[in-house]
């Protein structure tokens, strides 16, 4: 079975049946037009039409803080490398965020491998959700070629009014369908509706910036000494919101913490950001990206240039979170436009 059908009335059954067995997380409203992935027991709180959540689903794959090592100093210093993980279903992931998860997969499976990430990732079932229309004006998913489903999920839902067409992509996805017993067969008329929606979608989603996808890498290559970075230097307040909300940023800091008994302790990692003061500081005190503009450029280059050479893939997913959250109104699409104008 490649495609299945779920009547909208049955979404609640699907979610609550899954939630009886394992943790289910899905986008819920946080008020003020903001959303976040939270644990749900049924579908009542799930918001199908949402702009990208404050934090991307990255937080389940690479938690904000996670233990790497536990030790006991009293018994001749014993230690153990650990991973904290949990079986769960991640429901309602947009195509931009699916791309983000793929970026993280690549970064962490590159040798030397990061088993904390790789073990945890395989505990999570992913249910994607299609965007039939733009979420808001910040998105650039079409430019990044992430507006249509492109793998990276177990099931993929497309909302077609009274029902969802569900693409069954993996054995695990099929098991979720078998287990919950709320799906029906999708017949040709349903598939036609899907095709019609996709056709309409092609008309809606256009390159958000006037540049060809393939031209992005050369553009950034040419922009090493661009004045645009000086401009960002003046504006950026180094709050690091852009990197913390980015689905493909994965920099971290490692810290030891001893309990008050001064015997038991752990080593943990926590999200860090190249935008933070002191991120590239060495023990002698020298900081290698002292100016905020240099740090912003580094962020852009980690999305549009460096990963192309290494992984043949952009690490920008087009989700628009960095622009949406920037305290100083730094807008990714505008930055790219400025670079284009400057080079023209």
């Amino acid at each position: 079975m490649q495609y299945a059908l779920l009547k909208k009335d049955h979404l609640n059954d699907f979610i609550s049946k899954l939630a009886q067995e394992q943790k289910v997380v899905a986008p819920v409203s946080r008020g003020f037009g903001q959303f976040s992935f939270e644990e749900v027991a049924d579908a009542s709180r799930i918001i199908l039409k949402h702009i990208p959540t404050i934090l991307p689903p990255k937080k389940y794959f690479m938690p904000q803080e996670e233990t790497l090592l536990e030790y006991n100093l009293s018994e001749g210093q014993s230690m153990e490398a650990v991973v904290e993980c949990q079986k769960m279903v991640l429901f309602g992931v947009h195509t931009c965020d699916l791309a983000g998860i793929q970026c993280l997969n690549i970064a962490f499976s590159e040798r030397p491998k990061d088993f904390n990430y790789l073990i945890r990732k395989n505990k999570i079932a992913i249910v994607g959700l299609e965007c039939n229309d733009y979420c808001d004006e910040y998105a650039s998913c079409s430019l990044m070629d992430n507006h249509f489903p492109n793998g990276g999920y177990d099931l993929f839902f497309t909302d077609l009014g009274d029902f969802f067409i569900v693409h069954v992509n993996t054995q695990l996805g099929d098991e979720l369908i078998e287990k919950t017993k709320v799906f029906e067969r999708a017949d040709k008329s349903h598939m036609d509706t899907l095709a019609k929606m996709r056709e309409k979608k092609r008309g809606i989603f256009k390159n958000e910036v006037d540049i060809d996808h393939q031209e992005l890498e050369p553009l950034f290559k040419k922009s090493q000494n661009s004045k645009v970075w000086d401009e960002l230097n003046k504006r950026c307040v180094a709050c690091a919101n852009c990197t913390n909300v980015c689905p493909s940023c994965y920099c971290f800091d490692v810290t030891d913490e001893l309990q008050l008994d001064l015997k038991h302790g752990k080593r943990y990692r926590r999200w860090d950001s190249c935008q933070n003061e002191g991120f590239a500081k060495v023990s002698g005190g020298e900081s290698f990206r002292e100016k905020r503009g240099e740090r912003q450029k580094h962020r852009y280059y980690r999305k549009f240039l460096y990963p192309m050479a290494k992984f043949a893939r952009f690490f920008c997913t087009g989700c628009g979170r960095c622009s949406r959250t920037c305290m100083a109104k730094i807008n990714l699409k505008e930055t790219i436009r400025s670079l284009i104008t400057e080079k023209a």
Binding site: I54, E65, A238, C239, A240, N244, V245, S273, G278, T325
Partner: peptide, 10 residues
């Protein structure tokens, strides 16, 4: 030496 925003976002 970074802002409260960092922890607030986390």
């Amino acid at each position: 030496d970074y802002s409260v925003c960092v922890e607030c976002k986390l």
